[in-house]
């Protein structure tokens, strides 16, 4: 079966996408989500809805290929060509992660001895931005999210959950992306940072960035949402 014919309009076309975890130690199959289909245009924000534990995050992770999808297709229009995220070569996925597809997870994975500002600069450095420029843009992001300059050189492993989340957001949103996967980006944020995030998502949308999100505070972004997809599994 082929995906929806109007592919040329879409940056992403997801067709009968499914994920089941096989846990060998207990010989069990655990479905995460089953037969999810949707499509997405540039500048569109799509929200994944569903009860707790139906695999909304798993859907985002399968699109990013942190999880290996079990079935279906996710046809993505990259700048250099069309690929199926479900089965694209690993090097192509790595390339897309560097240049086109961003993932905003709920939790920061701090690295020992890497400062907050360096973590935020890193995606820019990987994209070849000079260090001074990267440092300036990272500082701009951190201050907009309300993180005081005094703690930028500190190591985030000691920071509060909210502070870590701000660093994570800045890191995930600082480099230009064509598709953003937002996994509860506003879950642990204070109201000021939530407003800053909403403002930033609105700008990205107007710039044509396509987004798929799972939101804890859906009211923050309600007027930005264009469409939604219901996630369920067959369990």
């Amino acid at each position: 079966m082929r995906p929806c014919p109007h592919t040329h309009m879409h940056i992403l076309n997801v067709h009968e996408f499914s994920k089941t975890f096989t846990i060998h130690a207990i010989n069990r199959e655990v479905p995460a989500f089953t037969n999810v289909s949707f499509h997405l245009q540039p500048g569109e924000l799509l929200v994944a809805r569903g009860a707790n534990g139906v695999g909304k995050s798993s859907l985002l992770r399968c699109l990013y290929r942190t999880y290996l999808p079990s079935a279906g297709h996710a046809i993505y229009q990259a700048q250099q060509g069309t690929v199926d995220l479900a089965r694209a070569a690993e090097v192509d996925i790595a390339l897309l992660r560097r240049n086109e597809i961003g993932y905003v997870s709920q939790f920061l994975r701090p690295r020992p001895r890497v400062s907050a500002i360096e973590l935020v600069m890193e995606p820019l450095l990987l994209a070849g931005v000079p260090a001074d420029d990267a440092r300036m843009r990272a500082g701009d992001w951190l201050s907009r999210l309300g993180l005081k300059a005094a703690i930028w050189p500190a190591y985030p492993s000691t920071f509060s959950g909210g502070e870590q989340q701000k660093i994570n957001l800045a890191r995930a949103l600082i480099a230009p992306r064509r598709l953003l996967l937002l996994d509860e980006p506003n879950a642990a944020l204070d109201p000021g940072a939530r407003a800053a995030l909403r403002e930033r998502l609105s700008v990205l949308k107007s710039e044509g960035v396509a987004m798929i999100g799972v939101f804890h505070h859906i009211e923050d972004v309600r007027d930005l949402v264009d469409s939604e997809v219901k996630i369920a599994n067959s369990q």
């Binding site: 250099q80 060509g81 690929v83 070569a89 192509d92």
Partner: peptide, 18 residues
């Protein structure tokens, strides 16, 4: 895959490097 379902990945299409 372990269950012997072949999961053939596509050849690289976007990566220009060899």
């Amino acid at each position: 895959r372990y269950d012997m379902t072949p999961t053939y990945f596509d050849p690289p299409r976007l990566t220009a490097d060899r």
